[in-house]
């Protein structure tokens, strides 16, 4: 233990550090000088490390104008979604609307509809092409006693497993409560796809980046509803603002008995369900 701590001890050398820039020139000088150089570099290096770390860490909360300019202030909204499964007729309009609105690639879905056919003898679940072309009649091996549709999509969780695992900060949650993917930063590692318990994410085969429902962020920031809500013919889907007291969606969430998907995972989904059956996961 006599040699290793040595360089550290030498940092206590009394010389003041301002000559540090001259460092590079000196190579085979006397050991004392080198001790000093080591010390100077330690200090300089430490400072650089600190500075480099700070500029990213210091979230400039002081006063940065919100993104989106004057037209839309993300601090004045907090979006939420309510799905009343008892109203869904499984037409798949939402899936088609989403695809048309967002150029969703074939074979993938940002929103989809599941069908549950349940009886004492068993249960059957399907979602052909995510419900894009509706549902066919199916024979079941058991006698069904109830059957229903469940629309699904990104839950825009408050405690997002997907944002948590993104290594480069390409996934993030906005102040108005929407989970987004920055397609220019995404490295396409697929970790978020693995981490989402709801299967809401996929890797776009064309762009090789992660993609998901954005609650139609390009629409809601212009005062429009998400496309799926816009085209839903039965009022199954509703989108609203938790910052507005009279908002019907907020009223429902505040006063009705709502459920969320996979509550035990504590992801705090912001899609709330009415009349959800226990078969649904």
């Amino acid at each position: 233990m006599d040699h290793a701590p040595r360089p550290l001890a030498s940092t206590r050398s009394p010389s003041p550090p301002p000559e540090a820039p001259a460092a590079g020139a000196a190579t085979p000088a006397d050991p004392g000088r080198r001790d000093f150089l080591g010390a100077a570099f330690t200090i300089a290096g430490g400072a650089v490390v600190l500075l480099a770390g700070l500029d990213a860490a210091a979230s400039g909360e002081t006063h940065v104008p919100p993104p989106g300019g004057d037209a839309y202030n993300w601090e004045e909204h907090r979006w939420a979604y309510v799905i009343d499964t008892s109203k869904c007729i499984g037409c798949g309009s939402c899936v088609r609307g989403c695809k048309a609105e967002n150029d969703v690639p074939d074979g993938f879905v940002r929103t989809w509809v599941e069908r549950y056919i349940v009886g004492p003898g068993g249960s059957y679940v399907d979602s052909p092409k995510g419900g894009l072309d509706g549902f066919p009649p199916v024979p079941t091996a058991f006698t069904p006693t109830k059957s229903f549709f469940v629309p699904k999509m990104c839950n825009h969780c408050k405690e997002t497993p997907c944002v948590q695992v993104c290594p480069v900060g390409a996934s993030y949650r906005t102040k108005d409560g929407v989970v987004l993917v920055d397609g220019k930063s995404c490295i396409g590692c697929g970790y978020c796809v693995q981490a989402c318990p709801y299967g809401s994410r996929f890797l776009n085969p064309a762009t090789h980046t992660a993609e998901k429902c954005t609650w139609c962020y390009h629409r809601i920031t212009k005062g429009l509803k998400p496309a799926c809500v816009e085209v839903c013919p039965t009022g199954t889907r509703a989108f609203g603002d938790m910052m507005r007291e009279d908002d019907p969606v907020r009223q429902t969430i505040d006063h009705e008995r709502v459920s969320i998907l996979q509550a035990h995972l504590l992801t705090e989904p912001q899609c709330f369900y009415l009349h959800l059956d226990m078969e649904v996961r």
């Binding site: 990213a56 300019g69 900060g169 390409a170």
Partner: peptide, 15 residues
């Protein structure tokens, strides 16, 4: 890092 560990410009880009 403006609002958190992500590229803040993307919010406007998404809009």
């Amino acid at each position: 890092g403006t609002f958190g560990p992500y590229r803040a410009d993307n919010v406007a880009e998404q809009m």
